[in-house]
């Protein structure tokens, strides 16, 4: 077994409400995964989950830090935001449940699939949320999940 070493690190700041740059970080991550040569199906699920996490910050929080670590056989993502926190986590996991205000839903965001999508696409998901402080999402994606 070779040592588990971080090969690429990306850390970017996300600004709440900045819909114009929304998706840039996930897009950048996608490019790295493609260039390094992870398989397309793996990249797809990482990018979908990353995008959901990124959008959650844009839609709900004031600001956040998106940090990715790429290893030889896995990708680790941490998104830490300063924001309102999630009042009922269990409810938030239900498909179609959203706390996004109407003006944001009108833009086509906040359809309420965020958390359930992240859960579906990742192999490991942890959410630490504190009301009035913020939310931290930690996700892992394994190239060979059965191992």
């Amino acid at each position: 077994m070779e040592e588990d070493k971080v090969l690429v690190e990306i850390e970017r700041e996300i600004v709440g409400g900045d819909f114009q740059s929304a998706g840039d970080v996930s897009g950048e991550l996608k490019k790295v995964l493609q260039q390094v040569g992870f398989p397309p199906s793996f990249n797809r699920r990482v990018v979908i989950a990353a995008y959901e996490a990124e959008m959650n910050v844009v839609i709900h929080a004031y600001r956040g830090i998106f940090a990715t670590e790429i290893y030889e056989d896995r990708v680790h993502i941490e998104v830490d935001d300063q924001g309102p926190g999630i009042p009922d986590l269990e409810l938030a996991f239900q498909e179609g449940y959203s706390t996004a205000p109407p003006h944001i839903r009108e833009m086509g965001f906040g359809a309420g699939y965020g958390l359930s999508n992240m859960k579906k696409c990742s192999d490991h998901l942890e959410i630490d949320t504190r009301i009035g402080e913020g939310t931290k999402v930690v996700m892992d994606f394994f190239l060979n999940p059965e191992k």
Binding site: G27, V47, I48, N117
Partner: peptide, 8 residues
């Protein structure tokens, strides 16, 4: 296509 790839 970028958006579709991100699951939208």
């Amino acid at each position: 296509l970028e958006k579709i790839e991100m699951g939208e």
